[in-house]
Design a protein around this nucleic acid. Structure first.
Ligand SMILES: [Mn+2]
Ligand SMILES: [Mn+2]
Ligand SMILES: [Zn+2]
Ligand SMILES: [Zn+2]
Lengths: 138, 138
DNA sequence: GTATTATCTGCAACGATGTTGCAGAATATT
DNA sequence: AATATTCTGCAACATCGTTGCAGATAATAC
């Protein structure tokens, strides 16, 4: 509760109930969320547009980052000290084809790739699809 | 020209002008194309819906494959022998933030990753963003 | 606590994107 | 040339995402 306010303040954002609810939804569900997911969870309380704008704001402030998925765009919490200036997202994302959830594998870094000369890499996005441990057990 | 008909026949597709034009657009431009790109190039000749269906058909027949991008979904030619049954797409995609083009780096394979136990990988998608050789020169 | 200012939210309207059903057109086959 | 198959265009619709603006709310100053 108070934790949420701290996070928002720390990123120079006013604390509003919508922002608190969006943020806590990200924290409670562990996986990456689309706008549609959030609308499903909070749509009765807040307007679609407000949720879009909240995502945009969180993205700009470095609270969440984009996750590319074969179904479209999702968002996940930035775990480390991402700020408005600098982001650290060289970790792997895993999507389970059984349960449909996409997760950050925060401690798995994307391996280096030797690009042909002339290519200057700046950011990386690796999505691995397959079966997650939970679904494998069932 | 005749090449196009061969490719279509080889995938058991009727040769229509729309399919020929979509296919040749992929061949002429080297980079990955979105539906919007194709609509911009061919939209005066063909209906939006027909272009959507052509993409879907090409995808199913293994003529093109999906390319994930921070802007959304694009498509690129399958260079090797992708068929309806089996696809080979463990290569890297590169998006240039300067010119906005996304390309297949067909001969760069995605490196292996040691996943935590319980995760069963099936497919991989690595997008590297940065500056391409052409834009670096300018 | 109240007034002021800056920011956020809801609503409406709109544009872009993608899907489906169906009748007529085009293609491949005989 | 006749037939069977499948492709295309149109219309209608659903989903997704953006923008402008007026009223509500939060932070700040008094
Ligand atoms: Mn992540
Ligand atoms: Mn490719
Ligand atoms: Zn799963
Ligand atoms: Zn470039």
């Amino acid at each position: 509760m108070e934790q949420l306010r701290e996070t928002l303040k720390g990123h120079h954002l006013r604390t509003t109930t919508c922002r608190e609810d969006v943020l806590s939804t990200f924290i409670n569900r562990k996986n990456a969320l689309s706008h549609g997911d959030l609308e499903g969870a909070l749509g009765e309380n807040y307007d679609r547009v407000t949720i879009y704008r909240t995502l945009k704001t969180f993205l700009e402030k470095g609270i969440i980052h984009k996750v590319l998925d074969d179904e479209g765009l999702r968002y996940a919490l930035c775990s480390h000290q991402c700020s408005e200036e600098k982001h650290h997202h060289d970790h792997i994302h895993f999507k389970c084809n059984a349960c449909g959830k996409t997760n950050c594998l925060e401690n798995l870094r994307i391996p280096n790739v030797a690009l042909p000369s002339g290519y200057v890499p700046e950011s990386f996005n690796l999505l691995i699809q397959g079966t997650c441990p939970e679904c494998l057990a069932n």
